[in-house]
Design a protein around this nucleic acid. Structure first.
Lengths: 236, 236
DNA sequence: CTACACACGTGAAGC
DNA sequence: TGCTTCACGTGTGTA
């Protein structure tokens, strides 16, 4: 972090070896270091800007400003283009779009993280409808949060902001987007069947007792059924 | 050598040592203007950068550098995303391409899916300890199964076998492995805080009413905290 | 020689 | 109180 360019060794104390000169010399070297540091910063700024008109001190800052404005403008253009492309994709096949958009959702989550600290990002997003919220403590140092809601824009961001405000680190965040739903008269029946089957599988092989959860690795498995398109299912 | 700036002003009005009255004052005001201009540039730079940590002179440049680097990185990501979106748009087959766009972490999930149908997988595995099992019906055609258990070998396989026996197709399956755990005395407190924060965020922006879940896209978000390794955490 | 840009040492102002 | 940051006037070098 700190680039400590200590300009020691300048034992030029031979001149004016008075009383106040020692104090002044300390201030002198401090100021010199400060100027050096600022000059280095400015040099780094010049290095970060590809287009440099002049090596002038003021020109460096001017070019940096123009470059920043260009980058901001281009960022807006690119995001608009992405929005347009995504909306085009959505219109093509609205039934299957959710799986195609899953990677996009994950990727845009990363990019939009950078925008969090950008105050100019408009928060005029749709409200989030929370259908289910579950917070489970796993052992001593981990929490598992399962949140099911409708997918609007910046849903991940807004949720992550909540966690960030709580000083919690995110280990992994899995997003699953669903569109197809199970049949109405089957769903309650399926719930019971799945619960029974899993528990039977689990309990038939060992005594169902909770052991020390602290050292154990945990697996959280999300799963859903749909007739729309099960592309991960090789039985299709 | 060029001491004209001091000694040239012999034709000065006031004596004042006769050295530097007119010419030196011109230089003084020039230098002052130069400093003013540079300070204004730096002020404009600070205005162009959204995130400002301190109003410090050096901090302005430092923040500008970081901001520029963030913008450059984000520009690269956005362009990559556009490239992918356009290439996907050219392909008219949206069936299987989405797996190529998955992150590596998610793609490895697919390889494990391939192992499901590998009959050579040994069945001499440790028993699965189910810590939590939850089956939720979402709308008409989808179920959401959340299973938390210890991670042994072939856990995914055995769970998927259960679903296979029930003639259910898997849309997506997310695995999250945790090792670090939260502190014992904090976990209950954190549960309440997270629940409150998320609900507050959600309810402050809309009336908390359940609408038609069938057409809505759903997002399931898994999240956990750990001090061991926060790979997705950019604040590290 | 002018013009310009920079670094220097120093005093002042704000925590 | 000391410490930091800043602006000032000035000397020096370069185009």
């Amino acid at each position: 972090m700190n680039d400590q360019q200590i300009n020691l060794g300048c034992d030029n104390s031979t001149s004016a070896g008075g009383t106040s000169s020692t104090i002044a010399s300390k201030n002198v070297v401090k100021e010199k270091n400060r100027r050096k540091k600022l000059a280095d910063k400015l040099l780094a700024l010049r290095e970060a800007v590809p287009k440099i008109s002049k090596l002038d001190k003021a020109s460096i800052i001017k070019d940096a400003i123009e470059y920043i404005q260009n980058l901001q403008e281009q960022e807006r253009r690119l995001q608009a283009e992405i929005m347009e492309l995504e909306s085009k994709r959505l219109k093509k096949d609205p039934g299957f779009d959710f799986e195609q958009r899953l990677p996009v959702l994950l990727r845009s989550k990363r990019t939009r993280y950078d925008q969090i600290y950008d105050p100019r990002v408009a928060r005029t997003t749709c409200p989030i409808q929370v259908y289910e919220l579950r917070v489970t403590s796993m052992g001593e140092k981990a929490l598992f949060v399962s949140l099911t809601c409708n997918k609007t824009t910046d849903t991940m961001i807004r949720v992550c902001e909540v966690f960030e405000s709580l000083k919690l680190k995110i280990i992994t965040a899995n997003i699953t987007a669903l569109s197809g739903m199970v049949n109405e008269e089957e769903k309650e029946h399926l719930k019971i069947k799945i619960e029974r089957a899993i528990l039977a599988m689990s309990m038939s092989r060992f005594d169902y007792e909770r052991k020390h959860l602290d050292r154990a690795d945990l697996v959280s498995l999300g799963w859903a059924e749909s007739t729309a398109g099960a592309r991960l299912d090789r039985r299709a």
